[in-house]
Amino acid sequence: MQFQINSEKTQALMTGDLTFADHASFKALIGSLLKGRGSPIVIDLSELDFIDSAGLGMLLLIRDEANKAARKLVLRGPIGQVKRMFGVTKFETLFVVEES
């Protein structure tokens, strides 16, 4: 997984695959996004090609951290396999998911 964070540290674009191997870099992403105060956190998944169960768990982790910080979390634009995984796991009931 690779990610880019906007200058306000409130939005991230994720690319590639989100798997167990990305846990350390994902924790760094969470830390960076939580530094941007007040604004909703938006994770753009429109360029994420693949997510496994560990990747889904990491999204639950950032949701919990955002809740602790009283920040809204939005997942934007899942497509392909990622969108199918969201459907199978009913993630749209756990997150605010925006279509791109």
Rank of each mutant, 00 (worst) to 15 (best):
8 E>K: 12
78 P>Q: 08
32 S>M: 15
45 L>E: 04
97 V>K: 04
31 G>Q: 14
48 L>Y: 00
85 M>P: 06
96 V>S: 10
63 R>Y: 01
49 D>F: 04
59 L>F: 01
17 D>W: 11
24 A>E: 11
98 E>A: 10
5 I>Y: 04
84 R>S: 10
27 K>D: 12
90 K>E: 15
99 E>H: 13
73 L>P: 05
31 G>S: 14
46 S>F: 07
5 I>P: 02
1 M>G: 02
50 F>Q: 10
35 K>R: 15
91 F>G: 00
50 F>G: 02
18 L>M: 13
9 K>Y: 13
58 M>I: 07
76 R>A: 06
25 S>W: 07
30 I>V: 14
96 V>C: 11
86 F>A: 02
53 S>Y: 10
11 Q>S: 15
66 A>I: 01
38 G>E: 14
32 S>Y: 08
46 S>K: 11
2 Q>W: 15
84 R>Q: 10
82 V>F: 01
61 L>W: 00
38 G>M: 12
28 A>W: 12
40 P>F: 10
86 F>E: 06
3 F>S: 14
79 I>M: 08
97 V>A: 05
49 D>A: 12
79 I>D: 06
69 A>E: 13
13 L>F: 01
51 I>F: 05
22 D>W: 00
33 L>Q: 11
46 S>N: 11
9 K>C: 07
9 K>E: 04
44 D>W: 03
24 A>S: 13
30 I>H: 06
90 K>Y: 13
37 R>H: 14
53 S>E: 02
94 L>A: 06
6 N>I: 06
60 L>Q: 07
45 L>K: 03
23 H>P: 03
18 L>R: 02
72 K>E: 13
7 S>W: 12
